[in-house]
Amino acid sequence: MTITELAPSAGEPLTLAEAKAHLRIDGSAEDDLISSLMRTVREHLERETGLALLTRTFRLYLDDWPRSRVIQIFRGPVQTIEAVTVYDADGMPGEIDVSGFVLDGQARPARLVLPEHPKPGRAINGIEIDFSAGFGATGADVPDTLKRAMLLHLALLYEFRGAVALDDQPAAVPAGYDRLIAPFRRRGL
């Protein structure tokens, strides 16, 4: 099971103005650095939680259908199922009818049940499920707790910006960060 992002985020959940207000910066000399750090803290938070903060499209690749018929999607919250494609033995794609599907997009992981399950002909990645996931189109749709965690993380990275190269970020997370994102984290047994 592999998930790839088909369309990048149209923006960031934090605005430059929010970040600069939190950092108490008035000038624009470091806007590029702050924007880069905003992207870094968002990507880190999304990796830690499995969430997509702003809505965008993804593709889930499966080798075969799960025995339970319940497809788990480890990127959420899932908003819509766009298309389901199954490849035959010759590698020709065939879209299947997704009307009548059942989606629990808010579950962690999201769960999808499709009405039909044609056998894929390819041994690897024979099934593709395109879906959109995220809290919404703007940062106003993202839970405040997650935005607060990102602002704390941004401040720490900004404070130590000279000690650790941007490519090596995030070097650390601030105290309290883990408690803020804990309710949104994936848990495994």
Rank of each mutant, 00 (worst) to 15 (best):
L16R: 08
E18Y: 10
A19L: 01
A19M: 07
K20E: 06
K20F: 04
A21D: 12
H22R: 13
H22M: 00
L23M: 12
L23I: 10
L23N: 06
R24F: 12
R24A: 15
R24T: 15
I25L: 15
I25V: 15
I25C: 09
I25Q: 14
D26P: 00
D26K: 02
G27K: 11
S28K: 14
S28P: 09
A29K: 07
A29W: 05
E30K: 10
D31P: 00
D31F: 02
D31A: 05
I34R: 02
S35C: 08
S36A: 07
S36V: 01
L37A: 00
L37K: 05
R39I: 06
R42E: 05
R42T: 04
E43I: 03
E43Q: 12
H44R: 01
H44A: 01
L45V: 04
E46Q: 15
E46V: 02
E46G: 03
E46R: 04
E48Y: 01
T49D: 12
T49G: 05
G50Q: 10
G50F: 04
L51Q: 06
L51G: 03
A52K: 03
L53E: 07
L53K: 06
L54I: 05
L54P: 00
T55C: 02
T55P: 00
F58Y: 15
R59W: 03
R59N: 08
L60T: 07
L60E: 14
L60Y: 13
L60N: 14
Y61V: 08
L62W: 13
D63M: 04
D64F: 09
D64G: 10
D64L: 08
W65D: 01
W65G: 03
W65K: 10
P66K: 00
R67G: 07
R69W: 12
R69M: 03
R69T: 10
V70E: 13
I71K: 08
I71S: 00
Q72M: 13
I73G: 06
I73R: 05
I73T: 01
F74E: 13
F74I: 12
R75Q: 00
R75V: 02
G76E: 05
G76P: 01
G76V: 11
G76M: 06
P77N: 04
P77C: 09
V78L: 01
V78Q: 04
V78C: 08
V78E: 07
Q79S: 04
Q79P: 07
T80E: 11
T80L: 09
T80N: 14
I81H: 04
E82W: 02
E82V: 12
A83D: 06
A83M: 06
V84W: 12
V86L: 01
V86A: 02
V86Q: 05
V86F: 03
D88M: 03
D88P: 09
A89Y: 03
A89L: 14
A89T: 02
G91W: 10
G91P: 03
M92A: 14
M92L: 12
M92I: 09
M92E: 12
